[in-house]
Design a protein around this nucleic acid. Structure first.
Length: 199
DNA sequence: GATTCGATTCTA
DNA sequence: AGAATCGAATCA
């Protein structure tokens, strides 16, 4: 079919901070009806479940939305915010609701499809440099809630080694007390597709 | 009704 | 650079 092989389940079995860091540089592969779309992850954020005020699962909050985070690592957690879909990788052993948000990636294959999904007028740099933009460019919707990142047609594959990974505070979580400052955002140094930081 | 792990389009 | 606007899901 294509040359991309899904990552093994064991890849996801790691502490959430380590997984978030490890995900930078890996590939998101989406086999769409119109063709293959591949993007290389350049930015992630870790969400530390019960003790993290910025997490949806803070205090073990268990709702229809957060339910999937209580399952095994490797599930797709998508959720809708405003008009956008955001993609997460479920982490932590079963019962521990950790997750990693995929914030940005650089286009690798299926460029014309991404441009189609994002609009002809936009510069390539603006296709995938934010979590909502990334989902739209890849054609990922709420349909994939509960899918596994190890299975077609949407999966993660081994990417290239990253040059250098930097850390910093997470984006858009202003009202989260001390958690605001935690350096749980991971991104590749000097990569132009990293999202713009907004305080 | 208010808030949220955003994005786009306007105004300047 | 900043304000205005969009509006799904969730929680008060």
């Amino acid at each position: 079919m294509n040359m991309y092989e899904p990552l093994d389940q064991t890849f996801f079995e790691a502490p959430v901070l380590e997984l978030a860091k490890r995900l930078v540089g890996q590939l998101i592969v989406h086999e769409t009806p119109n063709g293959l779309i591949v993007a290389r992850i350049v930015e992630t954020e870790a969400y530390h479940g019960p003790e993290d005020r910025a997490a949806h699962s803070y205090g073990n909050r268990r709702t229809k939305r957060t339910e999937i985070m209580f399952d095994e690592p490797g599930y797709v957690y998508t959720y809708q915010m405003h008009t956008h879909t955001l993609m997460n990788v479920v982490c932590g052993p079963r019962g521990i609701p950790h997750a990693v948000l995929l914030r940005a990636a650089e286009p690798v294959e299926g460029l014309h499809l991404m441009q189609e999904n994002r609009g002809e007028k936009l510069k390539m740099k603006d296709w995938t440099n934010g979590p909502g933009k990334l989902s739209k460019a890849l054609g990922v919707t709420m349909h994939y809630y509960g899918h596994r990142w190890t299975e077609q047609p949407l999966f993660l594959a081994k990417g290239s080694e990253t040059l250098e990974i930097e850390t910093g505070p997470r984006v858009g979580i202003g009202n989260s007390g001390e958690a605001v400052h935690y350096p749980w955002r991971f991104f590749e140094k000097d990569n132009p597709y990293v999202s713009k930081y907004r305080p």
